[in-house]
Simulated assay, not measured.
Amino acid sequence: MSRSTLIAAIFGLWLAWPAQAQPAFVDARNYPAPGMGTAAFDRLEERWLEGFDVACGDALCTGVYDYQRPFKISCAVRSIDGVLKSCHWAIVGTVERTDPETGTSEYEIRSVICEIPLASDIPLQVLLETADDRDPFFDPLPGGKTSAYWGIADCVGPLVSDVKGAHRIR
């Protein structure tokens, strides 16, 4: 093998290396490049939080864990084309009781990770557009028949009715 052929082969491998090093999936906030999706995804998250607050006041947050707050929304997308793989929402529920005789407060804390029911092969951009076009929390998600609300309502059931797995803090 000649020296120029060897150099060309090494150069070709060097050029191909970044494409191979790219992860298969990235967080939606980092698509198409690190940090570039943050503003658009934050807008969608803001609208989902508004919907959660309305639903929580209506019926979603009644029961044992009457104080519930969404903690973090995360969506994974294919890095090569921006198609959604999954979205999850961490939600924390608490209930506080005060012992009337000692004045000591006791807290029970429960967290759940809720999967947002996505249709398959939906581009991230299509989901992000729902933040401005319609109600992204209560309306059916793109390509599907289920809303983010129903995905969350099915998931937080243990927060409103079950004390198993609660963490007690005194």
Rank of each mutant, 00 (worst) to 15 (best):
H167D: 01
V126Q: 13
F137Y: 07
D139L: 03
L127C: 02
A76L: 15
T104L: 15
G157S: 00
L141W: 00
D42T: 05
V83E: 11
T94Q: 08
W89L: 14
T146F: 01
E115D: 14
V77G: 01
L128M: 04
V126G: 04
I80R: 12
L44S: 11
S120E: 15
S147W: 02
G151R: 01
Q68W: 08
V83W: 08
P70L: 07
G165M: 01
M36R: 15
R168Q: 07
E115M: 11
L128W: 01
E45F: 02
T38L: 15
L124H: 08
Y67G: 01
T94S: 11
W89R: 01
L124M: 12
C155W: 07
R134S: 04
P142F: 00
G63W: 08
K85P: 10
G63P: 03
F41P: 07
D132L: 09
V77A: 12
Q68E: 09
I113W: 13
D81F: 06
E129C: 00
V64R: 02
E115S: 10
P32R: 00
D162C: 02
C56F: 07
T104P: 07
V126T: 15
P117W: 04
T102K: 01
I116G: 05
S74A: 13
A39L: 12
T94M: 05
E101T: 14
L141E: 05
F71N: 15
G57L: 05
A76K: 15
A119S: 14
C75T: 11
R69I: 02
E115F: 07
E96Q: 14
S74N: 12
P32H: 03
